[in-house]
Computed example of a mutant assay.
Amino acid sequence: MNVTQKTQGLTKTPKTARGHKTLRLLLDAAAGEFGERGFHEAAIARIAQRAGVAIGSFYTYFESKEAVFRALVGDMSAQVRETVAPVILAAPDRLSGERAGIAAFVAFVRQNKALYRIIDESAFVAEDAYRKHYNDIAEGYAASLTAAFGRGEISDSDMTIRAWAIMGMNVFLGLRFGVWDETLTPEAVAKVAADLITNGLR
């Protein structure tokens, strides 16, 4: 992923390929450090060490531990959107897109298990970043549902409520079948969840 100002908290936006690579290394290292130790026990020195860069390189891009944490929340939020949204939109219709999107999200979580600890902790460390994470996803989701209604693929309703309801389901599916247990395939989880979205409980 090309890192840009979407990562809140950046002191400096890289202008070269080398700068983007260093920033990517720092954000990935921060994900490992915060994911394992939590915000309060994490250390800037260990983030730099994990990234394989001098500590001065850290301060080139971030002024503090909170700054890199905020940037990481924005970066992970963008990764979720950029992973799942194209999968949904590439499907032949919205309902099959929902199924594909759930599978893509569960698979993403399995490769990025630190996501949950970092996002949950942001509610206490950087509440504005926490709210932005969910609000940005919900706004995009509601807009894409509205577009699907315009194409005649789904029924009419309050798309904001629908977006938050589906997001809530995905969050807990990711926790249960992405972080806690990988026994079922993402596709098996998505099949059952998509049936609920399509047909409801009747």
Rank of each mutant, 00 (worst) to 15 (best):
I154C: 07
K191H: 06
V125M: 09
L115E: 00
I166W: 00
G97E: 00
K132L: 12
A103W: 07
F39N: 01
E182L: 14
L95I: 09
H20R: 15
H133S: 15
F149D: 00
T13V: 10
W180M: 14
A129N: 03
I55G: 06
A165W: 12
R81K: 10
Q8R: 11
E98L: 03
T183C: 13
N112K: 05
A31P: 00
L10N: 05
A42N: 04
L175A: 13
M76E: 12
L115H: 10
R99D: 02
V192M: 11
Y116G: 10
S57K: 14
F34E: 01
A103N: 06
A148T: 02
L27M: 05
E98P: 00
V87W: 01
H133G: 04
A100D: 02
Q111F: 02
Q111P: 04
D128I: 13
L95A: 02
G168L: 07
L27T: 06
A29L: 10
V87P: 01
K6M: 12
Q111A: 15
D28T: 15
G200V: 04
V189Q: 08
P92F: 08
D75I: 06
R117Q: 14
A17I: 13
V87R: 01
R117W: 08
E66H: 10
D120N: 13
G52I: 13
A148V: 01
S96Y: 01
V106H: 06
G101Y: 06
P14L: 06
T160D: 03
T4W: 10
A67T: 03
I44S: 04
A194Q: 01
R110M: 15
G32N: 08
V192Q: 13
E63G: 11
V53T: 13
V106S: 09
G140D: 02
A42L: 07
G38S: 03
V68P: 09
I161T: 15
L25M: 15
A123C: 11
S57L: 11
T183K: 14
K191D: 03
I137C: 07
R117V: 04
A123R: 07
E98F: 02
L10W: 02
P186Q: 11
V109Q: 11
L26E: 09
W164R: 15
G168T: 10
D93L: 02
A100Q: 07
R117I: 00
I166G: 01
S155C: 07
N135A: 15
E82Q: 09
V109M: 01
L115I: 00
A123N: 08
G97W: 00
G97D: 03
L89P: 01
T16D: 12
E121S: 07
K12G: 13
K6W: 11
A54E: 15
I166M: 01
D28C: 05
I88Q: 03
E36F: 06
D156K: 10
E187W: 07
E153R: 00
F177S: 02
G52W: 06
Q49Y: 13
D93K: 07
Y59P: 11
R24W: 08
L95R: 04
E153C: 00
R99T: 12
D195S: 13
P92E: 10
A165I: 00
K113W: 04
L26G: 09
A54W: 08
S77R: 09
V53W: 12
M169W: 07
L27H: 00
T11S: 09
L196T: 12
N2Y: 08
A129Y: 00
F62C: 13
A29H: 03
R24F: 13
R24T: 14
L201R: 11
Y116P: 04
G52E: 12
E127Q: 11
A143Y: 02
